[in-house]
Amino acid sequence: MEKTINLTLKVWRQANPQDAGRFEVYEAHDISTDASFLEMLDVVNERLEREGKEPIAFDHDCREGICGMCGAVINGQAHGAEKETTLCQLHMRKFKNGDTLVIEPWRSKAFPIIKDLVVDRSAFDRIIASGGYITVRTGQAPEAHTMLVPQPNAEKSFDAAACIGCGACVAACPNASAMLFVSAKISQLALLPQGQPERWDRVRIMVEKMDEEGFGNCSNHYECEAACPKNIKVSNIARLNRDHLWASIRAKLRG
């Protein structure tokens, strides 16, 4: 038989970027424990609409944990307390009847709040656009075996490429730093032969862009790794640090 629970939600409501915002309390009754967190919000929103009230705005797309659109801070934890889980994959069976949930948007100067729980993460897109690419000549795809990739590098590169850009690392970081995100985007290319031609320029350009967007500095709390739904490791940050150091020295040597 389906089990249902009742919850009290304290949700951040903010009409627009200029609005000061405030918490509002909603009762969420008869929530199926089989529902995902977003489905629970859907139920609450349907009720709000029936009552003629403004539904809670939140971002979502695939609801399969692979697109990186959803995300909110639940009781102080980005995507909720479950490990390696996006908000859409967080299920209501993880909560107890009578729980009070405080739901907030990512809070970072570089991610302005658009409405309620929706934040503008285009700063991430601008970082990618600044240098997170490789240059490939168009034409016939070359024979795959002409470019050899050591197995450990392929694994590490793929692990880094699992980043979905959801922004939980920034949300969880006490300094709102984007180092885990940027390090994943640097590492996925730095570990492969295709990423080598632009490697040393890329790291300097992307770090400069990251700073310009107003993200904080990493102070090695490692909360980002703990909050990441894709388990991106802080060893990527170490790689970013050493690549950036070498890139800066290299740039000086080359003049």
Partner: peptide, 15 residues
Amino acid sequence: ARSGRYAVSNDRGGT
């Protein structure tokens, strides 16, 4: 870099 404090702050075991 933080636009506002979280109402609830909760560590995740990293720090």
